[in-house]
Every structure is written in C-alpha cells, then in structure tokens.
Amino acid sequence: MAEHSDSATAETFEQPTEFAFDSASRAEMATILAKYPAGRQASGVLPLLYVVQRQMKRATGSAWVPRVAMDAVARELGMPPIRVYEVATFYLMYNTKPVGKYHLQLCTTTPCWLRGSDEVVAACRKATGIKGWHETSDDGLFTMTEVECVGACVNAPILQVNDDFYEDMDAALTAELIAALRRGEPPPRGSMTGRLNSAPAGGPTTLTTLDSHPAE
C-alpha cells in the first residue's frame, strides 16, 4: 500500500526552530499588503509564502517554506496557523521541505512527453544520480520534481530550474545543462537550441522574401 511519504508526521529533514523576515522581505511585504483593504490582509497569504520561499533561497540556498515561517506568516496576517498550513500544502509551488540549490522541475504532461520528456528525465537521473521524485542528490545541488504543464508547450520539452525555463531540451542538452549548473555557470534561460523565443527552428520559414526596407 502506498504510504504518504510527504505526510507531516514522517519528516526526515530538520525544521528550523525560528524564522524572522529580513529587511528585503519586509519591504516586499509592505508593497504586497498595501494592496488589500484593511481587515482583509489574510488574502495576502499566497504572495507572503512566496516571500518566505525567496528569503529562504537567499539565506540558505534552498527555496522552501519551513513550518516556523508559516507560523510567522500566520502571525503577520492574524490568521490561525492551520489555515496557512492548508494553503502552503495545497499549492505545489511551495516547497514544504528543503530542495537542492537547483530545483529541477520536469514537465511530463502530454506535449512535453510527446516531444521526449522521458529522455530528459532519464538524462537528469543519470547526471544527478537521483532515483525518485522529490528527492535531492547527495551533494545537495539538485532536486527533481515532476510538474504538470508549465505553459510553454511550443518549446517542449521544458526543464524548469528554479525560476528559469530551459526549453527545447533533449538528453544531450540536459547533460550539458546539468554539467554547467554543477560548475556554477547557469546558461541564459530560453531555448537551448538557439532559436529566438518560439520562432521556427533554423530560421524563418515564412515571409522570407519580404524586404522590410524596400529601396526607394
């Protein structure tokens, strides 16, 4: 029978014992909370959890939301802690346990899968040594997570690293990307085959004869 490994009662990692918003977070929070009418600040729970996750990334290199931070958000917004736990565990973009420095989020939804996401997943596993989902490599650099459609199907398959999309992936490009990340030299985000945004691969295929600057 499938046990729930991500149940709060089966933690294999350590939760920090305290959390305080830093000044950068405080500034972000002020902007966010100003958007809500007085007494409705609880609506800001989603962006605030994201503030927490970014602060954790800055402070520890791992973008996640520890429980004490959820308590801090609850205090900040005057809501019962359980209501914050509910939100934080519902949305998959909040990591409720630590992730590696590079959070590899692999889309395996139909378009990416048709364009070879299985290959990308296999290449990731080979390069990082990670066996299952939600696992972190022994060196703490990589965590692999399977995600649903990230909305960039035209450039499928997609490998999202932290907040950046790497597009048009295949096995070789994935191995190269991971090697570069390992060296601490993340390449620029976008298509890895060199095309501009989602322009046709190998250059324009239409309007090729149109002279945009006709001679007078």
């Binding site: 709060a8 209501r83 736990y85 509910e86 519902f90």
Partner: peptide, 9 residues
C-alpha cells in the same frame, strides 16, 4: 478553536 484543517490536496 481553529486547529483542524485539510492539508495537501
């Protein structure tokens, strides 16, 4: 006593 909730999805 808002202590019970539904976590995860």
């Amino acid at each position: 006593v808002p202590e019970l909730g539904a976590t995860a999805r």
